[in-house]
Design a protein around this nucleic acid. Structure first.
Lengths: 194, 194, 194, 194
DNA sequence: AATGAATGAGTGTTCATTCAT
DNA sequence: GATGAATGAACACTCATTCAT
């Protein structure tokens, strides 16, 4: 399994840095290889093609992203609390890895539709996590029984995503995690029983 | 003024169709020219370069988009009503122009950072319109006085945008405008006084 | 006869100015037309194509150039005197028309081989004039009887041309005509009987 | 160092042949690559851009040109002899490389002013060599003490250059080196003490 | 005669991928 | 496994010339 070899992660991390520093369209394979300290050809021993690097990058980073958030929510009983934690961790994780934030919010979106569809596939785990929290909230009577889960999830993800993107486009110059409770409250209000 | 000549709009409309049908990276100038029924060189009598076509496209379409929504809100007195109308018109306008929806939600986002910054400049008018509705709602006591306008705007825009994008990625196969009141209500709940 | 219409000369003079100020490769037909104060299409009522403008330009200017020098030599009896006068007038005429000097010495030489061959045809009158002076000098016993007329002519023209080109490339910042007698004397020494 | 790799010279030689046979403006990079037996992209592993090929071509060829002439003059004591040898070798070297003669005398002069300025920089070594011979001749009393070195150099270079160009334009159909002594003598007469 | 909008052929350069070593 | 030299397809833009008015 290639995933277990050191060069696999070495190349993915090099890709994150290279894309963050040069932009998506200026992150040529040769540049990533140089950043990783391997030859151009070596890349192709670990990845099928350039697209495969980017998908793998997203899978690896998003996988650990979702895992961290799942761990944070484990043991909590209230859906509202879970939602607040989710927003908070989403913001915190990206605020702690500036390179990754630039790559996921700005650069990777320049990839073509095909790649973005694959990336969306990777995102599904995260969206399902959100869905579960929402369903739980409805079942437990915390949220309105009439709540349209899909719309609510789009509201949560859209709001979080837009907030992070705006922060990245403003050069990350304000404290993103500080906004999490306010964002979380606004979202909760949207779902709650009057 | 080139904007008033028929070929200017002819080329922009051709660009929308070409990009929607072929994707951003497969929308070569030659293809746009052919779709517009003009020679390649004619493009450059109306646009400085390819980027200029895309920015102009966005300006023209977004300009009329904002104008339509402004007109719809004119004469309404309640901020809540305005917000619902805004969501409804946003959905309706894009649902009525499938090509434009694909271009704005998926294809144009693949452009490089530079172009996207210019596009964001064009978006400002729309974001300001949202801000005004929010401020009005706060002043009139419809929304919480403590509402963070910027965050609320990001929630509105993020939610709408994510909802439209999901709809486009699902090949526009369900009725988007039908969702507007539900989305609008969720947003309103987020801002309202308990 | 197009040569007698005012626009013919208007366009040629515009070509000289445009080429001198913008360089050969930046002297587009549209720019020449604008400088001449006519429409692009009007150029083609007076000239077959762009090359024709340049050849005509050279013919007109070189024609008057040769004529002026012929007039200067008329009535002189000694070949040596004629040669000195020829160098002197060559330098003076170009020194008095800075634009023309740039065009003939630098810019027009960037034209393709074909055009340059035609230009050489135009130059023939001038080279013949030189040949006549040389033959006269040999016949009158001023120059060596063994003088190779063709080589001597190449020496004269080559020397003059190189001197003018060097002066133009140095931005015409020294007094070219002041060098004529020295150049002329060196040439004469080359041909004279010991 | 790329200069030491075989493909570097392979490409330069291909450029000489391609330009000589097709003309400056018809010598596309693709044609040069084909002539060199490499892929288009390979060119750019050895040269920054097309202009770089041409400058390098001139540097390489002119460098060896000057070197050959310097070697021929080494050990000679009289300036007159050196001048005769210089003319003779100049003619002989170009007569032995018909392609190079066409390229330097006709084709490369069609390049734009910018490239020609760089080419002139390369020529400086040659002009300095001429200057040294002239100064030596004056110091040793072979040439007139009043000799204007710059003018004399322009006479030498201009005469040689015009003679070679005329020969090339006449399709190299007569024996150029056979003219060298006559040309050399005429030049020497121009500088000598009576 | 004069206009100027429209035409469309032509080309240097990049970069993901391969494969002989 | 690792290398990196070599490959070659793909594309925005310019400008001389035309021709309907």
């Amino acid at each position: 399994m290639k995933r277990n070899k050191p060069k696999y992660h070495q190349i993915i991390d090099a890709a994150v840095v290279t894309i963050a520093e040069n932009g998506y369209h200026q992150a040529q394979v040769a540049k990533i290889a140089k950043q990783a300290g391997v030859a151009d050809g070596t890349i192709y021993l670990y990845f099928k093609n350039k697209e495969d690097i980017l998908i793998s990058l997203f899978e690896e980073k998003m996988g650990s992203f979702v895992k961290k958030i799942q761990e944070a929510l484990a043991g909590k009983t209230e859906a509202a609390e879970k939602l607040l934690l989710l927003v908070d961790h989403h913001f915190s994780i990206l605020a702690e890895d500036r390179h990754l934030a630039v790559v996921t919010q700005l650069e990777l979106r320049q990839s073509n539709k095909e790649l973005r569809l694959k990336i969306n596939g990777v995102l599904k785990d995260y969206l399902q996590l959100i869905d579960e929290v929402l369903k739980e909230g409805v079942e437990k009577g915390e949220f309105r029984p009439s709540l349209n889960i899909q719309l609510a999830r789009q509201m949560i993800f859209g709001t979080i995503d837009e907030t992070v993107t705006t922060w990245v486009m403003n050069d990350q110059k304000y404290d993103l995690p500080a906004l999490s409770s306010e964002v979380g409250e606004m979202l909760l209000n949207g779902f709650s029983i009057r």
